[in-house]
Nucleic acid binder design. Structure first.
Lengths: 339, 339
DNA sequence: CTGAAAGCGCTAACAC
DNA sequence: GTGTTAGCGCTTTCAG
């Protein structure tokens, strides 16, 4: 590894000068600056960002922690965040937790230890209210707000759950099931709550046999609708799925078993991933705006970084204390062919 | 930030002892070790991995560089690599280049500067043969082998392109088009070459109007088949798509315009993303085994790390010089409903 | 404008 | 067992 000392030796200057030249500081002779920059390029010098970070106490990385990058919703979100981060001059590190709470926690800790400039996280489990307060770095959580000091961005899942359920009720379905993610998933819990409330408001029974928790993947949707339709004491005639992925699994099963959609059976999803809009799928669903989520999240991180810098500059605590952001994005019903 | 010095002060020991205790070294008194570990936990100590990396000259990170994480194929690949890396005790950092060569190059450089333990890259452009030789870290490239010192894993795209094209020929299609990714995409080039060769071997004309380059996304497939069918002097009756994403766009257009598949028009994709197997899609395609790619890539990185360590240990260059791996995975034709 | 030197937080000899 | 000390590669005062 070539260091600035190597360059210094060859250039016949002190390595402090090399550092200044390479960082394009003003207080260096233009001629020597050019000479050093050229020499560095020749020698194939690469700055050691580890060492840089250690002294400057900052990195140029933002971390994104998601449950499953192969899930189209998270995949699209990841891309949106990545683009927004790059735009702002930060490199995005994407971490995949595999819906594993322990893993997630460890990654959160590890990213802190890695001194990233900020962390954006889509939690896979419910946290204790104060958990995130322990994190000293700029942080944005994709989740419904708790009363703490953390920035939040979230879809209004309560509204989304209500809209979806009421849509099925309006369409005349009688026994509406809910096939969601893991029981511990926060977004999932809010939606199922809204689902139950909507049913009750319309004087319909909430039946535990029609509520199912499990993986958020396609196969899981397939398996669970199969189980519900073949083994449950009460058979649903419609299902509200916790995400589009699950809904696609459900559609696959219905298709294979010649159950006509939407005549015999209604299906609504959640997320509006790109595939749902395909003509051969045409899934009715609740849209979540990934791009906006990506942009907003990075914007909030930048704000926090900015504030942190101000605080350091003035020594004293800045007068204008920033209030944690509470961004609640509105879901949108996309009526297509499955209801 | 709490450092080992803070702990040392409170515990009344030197900070070297704290370091030893926290790293669970054997040469520390069991009692003090326990005391220190407990104290560290109480004080909310987090090791600064930046500092650790600086002195140990290694991180526990593997970097994965892909063109587009929102593309299902790369999304699934990312997940596979992530899981394999985690299994091996490494954290995976996923970087999204957005098919931007400059961006990609910068990320490659940056990851080197970040001293990651290894880099796994799916290049979005053709590199000069020796480009990768400049990288001193463990490296695995998802790409067809060049004659250099780098580990490669790749699908046999030549075989894949041949299989796909011949399948369409066998089905009796006469004017087979190719709708691929960017002209600079390596995998794309190999497939198009195979496509052209296959046509010639079967005494069919290669027509430039039936060959199209562009983005690897769904909308691009839609737009390009539209253009081909409405503006090209010669109209295709089948198309071999550079990936499933493009094929889905093509199917969407055909569907909207009531062109019957496979009777009037044949479509074959490439990758076999999960969605292609859905009953409402049933896309004929060439499968690439993501899981295997993920596992193999991490395995090769580990091998290289191992070798690097041995080399250092023995000072002398290890006698058993490791040969660069050349893994060529076999593609598999999945015949479904679109051909 | 440039050099000397301190030190970021930590690990790893080397003494005792 | 434990303390002392020398760096890892770099930025940044502080002198000159």
């Amino acid at each position: 590894m070539i260091t600035i000392k190597d360059i210094a030796k060859k250039a016949g200057v002190s390595y402090a000068t090399v550092s200044r030249a390479l960082n394009n500081k003003t207080d260096v002779n233009e001629a020597t600056k050019k000479r050093i920059v050229k020499l560095a390029a020749q020698m194939g010098y690469r700055p050691n960002v580890i060492a840089q970070s250690l002294v400057t106490q900052k990195t140029n990385n933002i971390a994104l922690i998601v449950p499953d990058v192969s899930n189209p919703f998270f995949a699209e979100l990841s891309r949106a965040v990545s683009e927004a981060a790059l735009e702002a001059g930060y490199l995005l590190t994407i971490c995949n937790t595999g819906w594993d709470a322990e893993q997630e926690h460890e990654m959160l800790e590890h990213m802190q230890s890695m001194q990233v400039s900020g962390i954006i996280i889509k939690p896979s489990v419910f946290y204790e209210p104060k958990t995130f307060d322990l994190i000293k770095l700029p942080l944005v959580v994709f989740w419904h707000p708790y009363e703490n000091e953390t920035d939040f961005i979230e879809m209004d899942h309560s509204a989304g759950g209500k809209i979806a359920t009421e849509h099925l009720i309006e369409r005349g379905y009688q026994r509406i099931a809910y096939i969601g993610g893991e029981a511990t998933s926060p977004a999932n819990q809010l939606r199922i709550l809204a689902y139950q409330q909507a049913l009750q408001e319309h004087n319909m029974k909430v039946n535990q046999d029609l509520i199912s928790f499990g993986g958020f993947d396609l196969q899981s949707g397939y398996d669970r609708i199969q189980k519900m339709l073949t083994q449950s004491p009460i058979k649903p005639d419609a299902v509200f799925c916790g995400n589009d992925y699950l809904a696609l699994g459900v559609l696959q099963y219905l298709h294979e078993n010649n159950i006509r959609v939407p005549e015999e059976f209604g299906v609504i999803g959640y997320d509006d991933i790109y595939f749902s809009s395909l003509p051969m799928i045409q899934l009715t669903t609740i849209a979540q705006p990934r791009k906006k989520m990506g942009e907003e999240s990075v914007k909030l991180i930048l704000e926090q970084i900015q504030q942190l810098e101000n605080k350091q500059e003035f020594e004293e605590q800045s007068k204008v204390e920033r209030k944690p952001a509470r961004i609640l994005l509105k879901p949108e019903l996309k009526i297509r062919a499955t209801t």
